[in-house]
Design a protein around this nucleic acid. Sequence first.
DNA 1: GATGTCCGTGAGAGCGCTCTCTCGGTAGAG
DNA 2: CTCTACCGAGAGAGCGCTCTCACGGACATC
Lengths: 331, 331
Amino acid sequence: MRRPTLEAVAARAGVSRATASRVVNGQTTVAPHIRDAVQRAIDELGYVPNSAARSLVTQRTDSIALVVSEPPTRVFSEDPLFSTVIRSASVELEAVNKQVVLMLASSAESHARVERYIAGGHVDGVMLISMHGADPLPAALSRLRVPVVSYGRPAVPVDIPYVDNDNVGGAELAVRHLVAAGRRRIATIAGPQDMIGGQDRLAGYRSVLRDSDRRSIVAVGDFTRESGAVAMRQLLGDDPALDAVFVANDLMAVGALQSLRQAGRRVPDDVAVVGFDDIEAAKYTEPPLTTVRHPVAEQAAAMVRLLLGLFGGGPADPVILPTELVVRESA
Amino acid sequence: MRRPTLEAVAARAGVSRATASRVVNGQTTVAPHIRDAVQRAIDELGYVPNSAARSLVTQRTDSIALVVSEPPTRVFSEDPLFSTVIRSASVELEAVNKQVVLMLASSAESHARVERYIAGGHVDGVMLISMHGADPLPAALSRLRVPVVSYGRPAVPVDIPYVDNDNVGGAELAVRHLVAAGRRRIATIAGPQDMIGGQDRLAGYRSVLRDSDRRSIVAVGDFTRESGAVAMRQLLGDDPALDAVFVANDLMAVGALQSLRQAGRRVPDDVAVVGFDDIEAAKYTEPPLTTVRHPVAEQAAAMVRLLLGLFGGGPADPVILPTELVVRESA
DNA sequence: GATGTCCGTGAGAGCGCTCTCTCGGTAGAG
DNA sequence: CTCTACCGAGAGAGCGCTCTCACGGACATC
């Protein structure tokens, strides 16, 4: 009991396979009554084109790899942003009838597998979400002859077009807000320095502090809630008189709020806190978290558009999306 | 500049295409020195089999669709469990060299697309994650001639093997814990009644209350934090003397804790709270949440094994995984 | 009426692979 | 030394589709 082939459709409609193919592919050079006959045969037989046969001859697969390359710590796939990125990219690709092939690359072994798969021409293009700096994947993929785009600027300089949010600008926004509120001793809990987001947000913090003649007070976390709590305790030890802290992501900010509460500091009265990301949970902290919002879904969608543009010979220029300060009660 | 074909490998190794194919597919009926020669040719040419050509003849694609069918409210893809399921299933499938094709089905239009795609034989099997009862997809897919398994028991009775956790048993665990602690007026915040998880957890609650001769006090939420907060306020209005509440998921429990705090109730002194899911955030609530843990990653992995088993003519029996009560401070 | 143009249709090659069938060669048995 | 058995390798068909090219008929032009 095999699925009907184009041959069967053609036979039933009394035309040649070539004509049936034309109808299936929506070519206009087919006489209306013939097109109708073929269409009827297609419906009656429940014909669906065999994609393997099609891509064998067209050399296209109509599927796109979404490669998530995360550090061994699994930071990203536990991140609430993960779902949003996946979802938005999928929706956008499905709108143009491309399939999403999801690939996780965490171990060296899986890296090799991904590379082999991509090299095998199974996909028309690659969307790469790489979360750590030492990742060899961006470089490796850019060497293959497949269009590749990246979610977020690759940590190593490599010739891949990317879509990122304005991490530096967002951090500046946050810190300027603290400066404008009259805070004097503004600390930061930075993210991992092998991630671009970690680096850039710290750079933004530094640049504003420099301009406003304040001393920088830095602790480093790894973007997890727990690390934020630890870093906050450390900062309070380093400078008990600090009156503000810019935290490089909301997850760490939640941890920081916890430590501040335990240390008896009131937020924002004693210490103002600004986070980054505007995750769902930021609305529900005590007090609600002032944070920097960046358009995650839109960034993913822009990445898809960038890739699709590449197919059409479009520009390969990076896209930087603006960030926005969301003022709640913590600062 | 085309990719090398098997023909090229064969030519270089001085053998026939058939023999080269045997080497590529690891057949043992090839003389060692010939196998080595072919292998060398493969390496030198950087040969990678063309999957389209291969699946054209084998009628297999080695890819599996992961269909996420969520209600229009997008409950699931915002759920922290989402990432875990996706991740675990991917890892498990990649271990056996199958590709994961991710498909989101929310609108009726995307349902049709998914059905067409599956019917088109693009995948060897389907893993279905359906989150709402009225979903026509399970029934539709079970009609196609493709192996299908479901993450969670389908809401409508349909002949699809599935893997689920013991929702009823888990709820019973939770409520028995409250009974054992001497709580007299035990309320519940139930999940949506068009989801299996919502129904079963309520059923578990009811069965224990019945056995222990207590009155049930029920409010219904939709598994979001906000709905949990609303439901809790409502419950306090209905029965100000309630001394415990079983909440059908942690997200709602977080909202409930918030409402309790606002109402001046101490947890667990005045009101004990038990959640369900054991999400990451449950550790960080004030006080930390007692909850029912179920093995999400393992459930996803079991689903993959179930599907792979189906390919080999294995059993199609549902798998139910046990749950476990995690006692923290809220009850 | 012959020639040219254009448009819709069919014939057929070929995409790269797997797999069956066949065949040649070697070894063991008689 | 011949016959049978077996095993490794090659020939070739065919998976279902697209696409180029050739062809035939309708119509316009000279």
